[in-house]
Amino acid sequence: MSLPLSAGPGSHSKRLMLLAAVLALAALAALAFWLTGPKSPAGVRPPEYRQIPVAVSVAAASVGPLRRDLHALGTVTPLARAVLRPQVDGELLKLHFTEGQAVAQGQLLAEIDARPYLAALASAEGELARTQALLDNATADLQRYRRLARQDAVAGQQLDTAEAQARAYSAQRMKNEAQVADAQRLLGHTRIVAPQDGRIGLRRIDAGNHVRADDTEGLATLVQIRPISVLFSIPETQLDILRQAQARAAALRVQAWDADDRRILDEGTLEALDNRIQAASGTVRLRARFDNADEALFPNQFVNIRLAVVQQDNVVTIPTAAVQYGSEGAFVFVIGEDRRASRRVLRLGPSNAGRIAVEAGLAPAELVVVEGVDRLHDGRDVLIVGQDS
């Protein structure tokens, strides 16, 4: 009878060696496949930075008029300003306005107690009536004396006395008439009315107080709003340009801009030029007049003034933001049909309101770079992401 075979340590080692041989063969097969199999295409290298198109905003060169403006800082000044002061003494009975109200010329604004002035007027009129009666009697006597004098029935001295008496009463009547007129004037001052159209300010006194004719502060201040003016100054070096512009045009246009110089408030005309130069500052003062229909201009407001003195027609202009400066002078980057930037040196003229005239170097409708200039060089591809009008 035979005994069963038992697995010893030698058979376990053989199995491990067989497994290692299989793994080695698999690795060799994979290596052979990688070496002899089809090659994968080479990876595409990412483009370099200088090959990426630059995003830019452009604007087209346009043809049109270009004005030349004189710039100045101005102060809005009413054409008329009145402090409403009482002209007579008395109790302030009533105020007929509200603060900040727009009023019309002749509108009743305040009333002062008129009773003392009514009494004074009645007294003056009474004196005038008395004097008139005496004058009428003296005139009748004079006529009688003259008839008697022609008949030699009265002494010459009596006639002279009658004539003197009539002249005296006539003079007294003139005096009484003046007193009546003055009493009427004082009575009229008990009603304070607006001397012109305008807007009234804050009141300085309330009804019920006693006011006096010598009060300097007044009841309130009335300023004319429409129309209104702006006072400003320009250097004396610009006076010649201004005088030449005045010779060419009867009325020069003036624009008033806000303090930030971003929004136009109103447009008017130059009204007056001062007759002398301020020696201390070397400037000359001017006044511009504005309709101020929407009351955008307010008294004592600071505004930026643009006075148009020269206008050129049919001028090629571009935004001033497109112009760069280098060793060769002013230049721009022009974008061609191939969407590439080319550096172009220009000869520039005057500028105004964000645009500058091009005298040479650029044709109408050519595109110039406005934003993104700092990343450009000659021949660089661009991507247009915006175009200004």
Rank of each mutant, 00 (worst) to 15 (best):
E328W: 03
R340Q: 02
E267V: 12
L92R: 08
V180F: 05
A61W: 06
L367A: 10
R263P: 09
Q107N: 04
E125C: 04
V385R: 01
I52T: 02
A80M: 05
T77E: 04
L383A: 14
Q244D: 12
R340L: 01
G74E: 11
A21S: 09
A250K: 12
T161G: 08
A183I: 02
H189Q: 06
A259M: 13
V211K: 04
D215H: 00
V309D: 09
I228N: 02
T36F: 11
A29V: 14
A245I: 08
G336Q: 10
L242M: 02
Q238L: 07
Q278A: 13
A80S: 06
L231N: 06
V382L: 01
G188Q: 07
T283W: 00
L134R: 09
F232K: 06
L239A: 04
V309L: 06
Q151S: 11
N275W: 12
E99L: 09
A153R: 00
P235G: 06
A256R: 01
N137S: 12
F331G: 01
F232G: 00
S6F: 14
Q132N: 15
G74W: 08
L273D: 11
R343C: 02
E328I: 05
P38R: 01
R204N: 09
S389Q: 14
E271A: 15
H210P: 08
Q143S: 08
E371Y: 13
I225S: 03
L95A: 12
A363W: 10
P227M: 07
R185K: 12
G156F: 09
A245L: 07
T77N: 02
A24H: 12
A24N: 14
A42G: 08
L93N: 10
L159W: 00
P299H: 01
L362R: 03
I234L: 14
L187A: 10
A42Q: 13
T36S: 07
D258E: 06
Q179G: 14
I205H: 04
D240L: 10
D215Y: 00
G198R: 00
P299N: 01
T98S: 11
V223G: 07
T131A: 15
V385H: 02
V332H: 05
